[in-house]
Amino acid sequence: MKDVREEYHAEGLSEGHLHDNPVEQARRWVDEAIEAGFPLPNAMTLATVSADGQPSTRVVLLKGIEGGGFTFFTHYDSRKGEEIAANAKVSFTMFWQPFDRQMIVIGEASKVDEEESESYFASRPYASQISAAISPQSQPTSREWLEAEVEALQQQHPEAPVPRPANWGGYRITPTEIQFWHGRPSRLHDRFRYRKQADGSWVRERLAP
């Protein structure tokens, strides 16, 4: 691993390239990754912290940027859901290697309203609705049990919509800090940080790479 090297060749990132609102700048970068056809352009590595201070991470999918925040969906009684209930402070990272770009968001997560969760669940493919409805996410299980539960629920609901489980829904991460990183040759990267102020405005500053 010590010999693995990756040189970055991206053009420079200056303050003139950045939107005054970091949430809108984040939307630009996500949209550009989607338009470029990158695999899983909305994948984000989400970090949560347990009540006793143990961090954990996993990859989830960003499903919206609205209401001043970033939305994803999951089981509320999963490990991440239990940790958010104990400590709403979270962070996530998105990395788009072909663009030599990384974005880090720090903030707090809160549940979206029931109507929004219902609407998104109904928009999911039938098989995804089934899987979400039967899964005791993060709990020990067996493949045989999962497949048996899928078959049983498919018999009850042979077509969409499948009822949304009460323990499944969305979270919106409201940011207090957002960083934009742009890889540059010789590791002299461009890096900008926005920090939210008490009056709701944002302060932007360049950071050393």
Score class of each variant (00 low, 15 high):
S135N: 11
F121L: 06
W145T: 14
F121D: 04
S142C: 03
Q139C: 04
S142L: 05
A127G: 13
W145L: 15
A133Y: 15
S131T: 09
S142Y: 08
A132G: 08
E144D: 12
A122E: 03
Q139S: 12
Y126R: 01
P136S: 14
S123F: 11
R124H: 04
A122Q: 12
P140A: 06
P136Q: 15
S128M: 04
S117Q: 01
S138M: 08
E149Q: 15
Q137K: 05
S119A: 11
I134L: 09
S131R: 06
P125N: 03
R124G: 03
S119C: 09
E118S: 13
Q137Y: 08
E149F: 11
S138Q: 10
S135E: 10
E118K: 09
S117T: 00
S119Q: 04
Q139P: 00
A148Y: 07
A127D: 15
S138W: 09
L146K: 07
I130C: 06
I134S: 06
P136H: 15
P140E: 07
E147Y: 11
E149V: 10
I130N: 02
A133M: 13
S128I: 02
Y126Q: 01
F121M: 00
S138Y: 14
S128C: 05
A122P: 01
E118M: 04
A133K: 12
Y126D: 06
A132K: 02
A133I: 08
A148G: 13
A127R: 04
P125C: 08
A132E: 02
R143V: 15
E149L: 07
R143A: 14
E144W: 06
A133C: 09
R143C: 13
E144G: 11
A122G: 01
A127M: 11
R143W: 13
Q129L: 04
E147R: 07
R124L: 12
